[in-house]
């Protein structure tokens, strides 16, 4: 390897001009003026999670959701193709027979669980699904204190998503940080868009 050449910079001896600059704190004022300028300009960071939140685009791959059709029937027929397609083995599906019209066929999922701690959000399950029942949604706040909480059951996944499917996304909206006993949530207000430069 080449030897690194160390450049030795010779400092000039301090002159009168320097001394003057120091006495009026010129560098200090320069620095402060930048701070002051940013202080007054529009902020470029997102004030997440207290006030704002970024809503991803529809193609975003976040936590799984299970969908229903227009009549409210479960789309999932528990064919287990998502399980087969999953590279990390994080999905568990157990089918059962249900003739009550709960699902679009008489085969519905008795168990549909995904371990989000294992999932790496590749979206193969989405691709494999013949009924578009499983979609990767736009929820990305998945941190939790216990591993068990990372397992999402069918009941949780069937709840409507926080961001509807047809919402455009790619924007920052107003949000509110909510501390509850079950954890911390950032609730967006989708209709209060925050413009950024």
């Amino acid at each position: 390897m080449n030897e690194k050449k160390v450049k030795i910079v010779k400092r000039d001896t301090p002159g009168a001009l320097d001394l003057a600059k120091k006495t009026v704190f010129l560098d200090f004022i320069k620095g402060l003026s930048i701070t002051l300028r940013y202080n007054l300009s529009r902020s470029i960071t997102i004030r997440y999670p207290d006030e704002e939140k970024w809503i991803p685009y529809p193609r975003f791959r976040g936590a799984h959701t299970l969908n229903r059709d227009e009549e409210g029937r479960e789309l999932c027929v528990a064919c287990e193709l998502c399980v087969k397609a999953c590279p990390t083995n994080c999905i568990t599906v157990v089918p059962m027979e249900d003739d009550t019209g709960k699902g679009i066929a008489d085969r519905v999922a008795k168990v549909w669980e995904v371990d989000l701690a294992r999932c790496f959000f590749c979206g193969y399950c989405e691709d494999a699904c013949p009924t578009t029942a499983v979609r990767l949604g736009r929820d990305y706040e998945l941190a939790c204190f216990e591993l068990d909480k990372a397992r999402k059951t069918k009941e949780e996944l069937l709840k409507p998503q926080s961001v509807p499917e047809d919402f455009e996304g790619g924007i920052i909206v107003q949000a509110k940080l909510q501390r509850t006993k079950s954890g911390i949530k950032v609730k967006p207000n989708l209709w209060k868009k925050k413009e950024k430069k």
């Binding site: 528990a78 064919c79 287990e80 399980v83 087969k84 157990v94 089918p95 059962m96 027979e97 008489d106 085969r107």
Partner: peptide, 9 residues
């Protein structure tokens, strides 16, 4: 066996 499993399970 109806709707209990897939052969690969």
């Amino acid at each position: 066996y109806r709707y209990r499993a897939r052969p690969w399970d």
